[in-house]
Design a protein around this nucleic acid. Structure first.
Lengths: 203, 203
DNA sequence: TAACGTCGTTTCTTTTAGTAAACTTTTAGG
DNA sequence: CCTAAAAGTTTACTAAAAGAAACGACGTTA
């Protein structure tokens, strides 16, 4: 088993406290090798000297901020938040599991929602699975419209995604769409069986 | 004043182009003043010399990564903010579709991420599909841990969900979990094939 | 208004990062 | 094997950052 990082945090006022190394070098090398690049190739992509890259990978230097940025750009190291330590907030240290089909049902005329992970209440996102009963746009009285942003992933079947400012578009299993939920939007099944989608809303 | 690579002569395809630190100095100063701290106080909190802090705030230097880390810790800053462009405007009226398999790949040693809907940049949620290559907890050197909350849905296969404060739990296709991402967490495949999961992060 | 204290900037020196080039190791042919 | 090319590391040097201390600007108080 790997030694688990301590939860105990150093006080902010202790100047000599340990600064998380983040193993930047190891990550850089990992990414480079995964992409099958040589140091020379990365050098060309980032504008950083081959020798410098070698030293970074071997933790022989602490690269400057500009170098780190070049690295991130050139290597496509995105999602930098994955490399960062945590801070505390409302649902601190909590976890909530919902087994398949065990969400909280919320049927409507056109949709059959299944609310997931409903036992954590004050959360940033609301995820739910939905069976799309509707087959035509006419079944909706008006646009659905609410605060926040919405992510939609088609789990099964095919749907037509209608929105106020765009042409309707057909989405198949595995396709996803991210949109501003204050823009009117609705979804209908276009497959013989009711389509199933995952929806995640954030306010 | 420090001599720096010219901004004027740089072009987008030029590998030597200068990557602007996104007003790091301004942000640092902003945070410091918001908290009502003097340079001397920040110096004590971070272990960085007063003079160095002054230079950083006035963009006279490009601080080393170790210094940036100390800053982040001492000021309670958030690393991603430093690398992401600031923008007030929302995604109002926007929509972004990603077809199956057409996301932006981000492979690591243990995961194979596919970032979805990446063309909308300033969004509240970051959705990505991930193939879980790891088979044992030991393949991770340490807990993954970052700001925000995370929603996970198993799309295919079986996984073991490890987290710092709970016992490991097996999740099968269709199961989901919602958790505080600052709690250490990792995932490994337990099926013969690599499991596929959907992850949505909100900060 | 003189003397003091606090804060941010600047100067100066030391330390460290960044690069080009030399060097060593690995890989691929024959 | 041997050799050549390519990849990675180390060296030697230059450029830049970090820290200590000096400086200047400003507010407070006697």
């Amino acid at each position: 088993m790997v030694s688990r990082p301590s939860l105990e945090t150093a006080t902010a006022s202790d100047p000599d406290r340990f600064v998380e190394p983040l193993e930047l070098g190891k990550r850089v090398k990992e990414i480079r090798l995964t992409k099958g690049w040589t140091l020379e190739e990365v050098s060309k992509r980032t504008g950083i000297a081959r020798s410098t890259l070698s030293k970074i990978e071997n933790d022989q230097v602490s690269p400057s901020f500009t170098i780190v940025q070049k690295l991130i750009k050139g290597l496509g190291m995105d999602l930098p938040q994955l490399f960062v330590e945590a801070s505390e907030h409302s649902i601190a240290g909590r976890r909530d599991i919902t087994r398949k089909g065990k969400g909280e049902p919320h049927p409507t005329a056109t949709y059959e929602h299944e609310l997931l992970n409903f036992s954590i209440s004050r959360k940033k996102m609301v995820p739910f699975k939905t069976k799309v009963r509707a087959r035509s746009f006419d079944e909706f009285k008006e646009w659905v419209r609410h605060d926040g942003e919405e992510f939609l992933l088609v789990l099964e079947g095919k749907i037509n995604f209608f929105s106020e400012l765009y042409e309707p578009i057909e989405l198949k299993e595995g396709d996803s769409v991210y949109y501003d939920a204050s823009m009117g939007h609705t979804v209908v099944s276009t497959s013989t069986k009711d389509a199933e989608i995952l929806w995640v809303v954030a306010r």
